[in-house]
């Protein structure tokens, strides 16, 4: 599966890419939503991992946009913020998964099963 990672923290982004490749996925990393938009659109059956706290276009806005595509990819939200913040940001949005940091490989493999 092709997995897009939209995460501005370099350490998190790099380690996430490593572990995703490790479980058999192809990874495309983006620093923010804007750089994701520059490339080809992610479509099903791709997956997009979105950090809620992004510089520029907010993560929740990217999630809404992705879920409204004609053939939406799987959308997985990652965040280190509080539950209250997550609920507030995701009002009305139902992504395929929400993972709270710190992340671990088991949680990732549950949402994006290894190939």
């Amino acid at each position: 599966m092709r997995v897009h990672v939209v995460e501005d923290d370099a350490g998190v982004s790099d380690s996430l890419a490593l572990i995703l490749r490790n479980i058999g996925h192809t990874v495309v990393s983006h620093r923010d939503a804007e750089s994701l938009f520059k490339g080809p659109l992610p479509t099903a059956p791709d997956a997009v991992i979105v950090d809620l706290s992004l510089p520029g276009i907010p993560g929740a806005q990217l999630v809404r946009w992705l879920l409204n595509l004609a053939a939406p990819p799987r959308v997985v939200v990652i965040t280190g913020q509080s539950q209250g913040f997550i609920d507030h940001q995701l009002r009305g949005l139902v992504p395929d998964g929400v993972m709270r940091k710190p992340l671990d490989v088991d949680a990732i493999a549950r949402v994006l099963p290894p190939l």
Binding site: V12, S15, L16, L18, I19, G80, K101, P102, L103, V105
Partner: peptide, 16 residues
């Protein structure tokens, strides 16, 4: 959370 996430994933990648 940021460094802990990265740390955990690096170590788990090696472990796997």
């Amino acid at each position: 959370n940021q460094p802990l996430t990265a740390l955990m994933l690096y170590l788990q990648a090696i472990r796997r």
